[in-house]
Simulated scan of single mutants.
Amino acid sequence: MGMAHVMPIEIGFKHCDPAGIVFYPRYVEMLNDAVEHWLKHGIGKGFALLHGERRVAIPIVNLQVDFVAPSRLGEELEAELRIEGVGRTSLKVAIELRGAGPAGTRRVHAKLVLVFIDMNSMRPIAVPGDVREAMIAGRYWEG
Rank of each mutant, 00 (worst) to 15 (best):
A137W: 00
H51Y: 10
D130F: 11
A48D: 10
N62C: 15
A137F: 06
E96A: 14
V93M: 11
I60A: 15
E133F: 05
D17S: 01
R106G: 01
K111W: 09
H41T: 14
A100L: 05
L114S: 15
G52F: 13
G44K: 02
F116G: 09
V113E: 09
R139A: 00
G52M: 12
I83S: 01
M119A: 09
N62K: 14
E80T: 12
F23M: 05
V22C: 14
E142F: 04
I136N: 01
A4R: 13
P70D: 01
R26T: 12
E80S: 11
I60W: 12
M135I: 03
A137T: 01
R132W: 04
K111C: 11
R98S: 04
P70T: 02
G87D: 04
G129R: 07
G20E: 13
K92S: 14
G12T: 15
V6C: 09
H37M: 04
A94V: 02
P25T: 07
L81H: 00
A34L: 02
P102I: 04
S71C: 02
G42W: 06
N62Y: 14
I43R: 03
G85Q: 10
R98D: 06
M122V: 08
E96T: 15
I83D: 09
G85T: 12
P102L: 06
M1P: 09
D118L: 02
